[in-house]
Design a protein around this nucleic acid. Sequence first.
DNA 1: ATAAATATTTAGACGAGTCTAAAAAAATAT
DNA 2: ATATTTTTTTAGACTCGTCTAAATATTTAT
Lengths: 218, 218
Amino acid sequence: MLSFTEENYLKSIYHLSNGGSKAVLTNELAESMNTKAASVTDMIKKLSAKSLISYEKYYGVKITKQGKAEALTIIRKHRLWETFLVSKLGFNWDEVHDVAEQLEHIQSALLIEKLDEFLGYPTADPHGHSIPDKHGKIKAVRHILLTDLLLKKKSTVQSVKQGSPSFLQYLNKIGIYIGVGIMVLERVEFDGSLEIQLDGKKKVFISRDAASNLMVTE
Amino acid sequence: MLSFTEENYLKSIYHLSNGGSKAVLTNELAESMNTKAASVTDMIKKLSAKSLISYEKYYGVKITKQGKAEALTIIRKHRLWETFLVSKLGFNWDEVHDVAEQLEHIQSALLIEKLDEFLGYPTADPHGHSIPDKHGKIKAVRHILLTDLLLKKKSTVQSVKQGSPSFLQYLNKIGIYIGVGIMVLERVEFDGSLEIQLDGKKKVFISRDAASNLMVTE
DNA sequence: ATAAATATTTAGACGAGTCTAAAAAAATAT
DNA sequence: ATATTTTTTTAGACTCGTCTAAATATTTAT
Ligand SMILES: [Mn+2]
Ligand SMILES: [Mn+2]
Ligand SMILES: [Mn+2]
Ligand SMILES: [Mn+2]
């Protein structure tokens, strides 16, 4: 059984490697785990000894099939709990991440299956992220960055890329939520900001930074 | 903030001292925590330094007002989660304890308040144990041991004392649950076992051990 | 091709929580 | 009252995850 810490490293490796498609460097991992490179090297050796990652000295780590399965289980739990907090307990979408960071480590397969059932087998969490099923399968979703959306093309907000509380609160304020209709009216040459129109003809300007954090349907 | 381990010790001290009414000895605590006396002595010093217990060398520990408040919060969380697991997720009452042992350590005041509301502010958990309110107040309940119930007196099962899975499964099998009507028909001199009658005229024999694990209304 | 800068690993230490073995105190028996 | 047994504490060691400082490998710049 994995420790709390091992689970967190593994999840981070999974995310930083884009689901296993590339190697993760020690320093990247150190930054994402808020720790030092030396500590990362230590943990890398542990996870490697457990065959959850493969490791070539000085060239970073790659997640193994087994490691990926573990990571997906943790991600599944995280996203199911976030869904529970919002849809059943009435949390806002900007309040759930830190609690889910704790809940994702609860060990009980029965609990997760019952929770999934209770929630009606949701396929996406409150931030629009796909929830892996019990076999680790993720529903493929077609989406593009809002910055790449064609002008005047009608689309729908599908997910946020990085869901920090402050970004989510900002989205609340300007009326953007998962599922809202969206169209880019104009792209400002100077700074890459966009004028967009939301459901109900509401028009707003958003920065390039904000736009590149939003995924929309093709 | 308390560690996982500190919380578990504190809860154990609270229970072993009957809610703070007597001192707890090192060996009792060691047995209940499944650890060694030497480890207990170490932890006692830590909790003492944090003013959660007061400690007189060789004469055991007493929980302080502050320690009691912490313990009650953990117990509240444990029992609310057990209630959630049974009433919302469909767990059986013999399956919830171990999961609640993990869930009780999740740190989020908001989560507990929302959970309490979601459950409709329950006052007892699936085993009939009182759930402290957010101020640590416990609803007083009048109850006696089934072994002390007068013959032929109609009563109701109110709670189990120790709720081990095997005992709870045994209760399922013979038709005893929280709230069932119960009456003692006869007390066997020889071994202290009881013949009881449940709702629907069902008659069963139960051992003295089993009976002394059941609380009934006066 | 060599030097400088950057990234990674190793070495050694620390705190938390645990353990075993030994010492000390308290309770019990004679 | 003394000796024996039981309980508790202390001493020293171990694992886990972390850190800083130093050593080493790799990458980039000249
Ligand atoms: Mn999250
Ligand atoms: Mn999410
Ligand atoms: Mn319980
Ligand atoms: Mn209970």
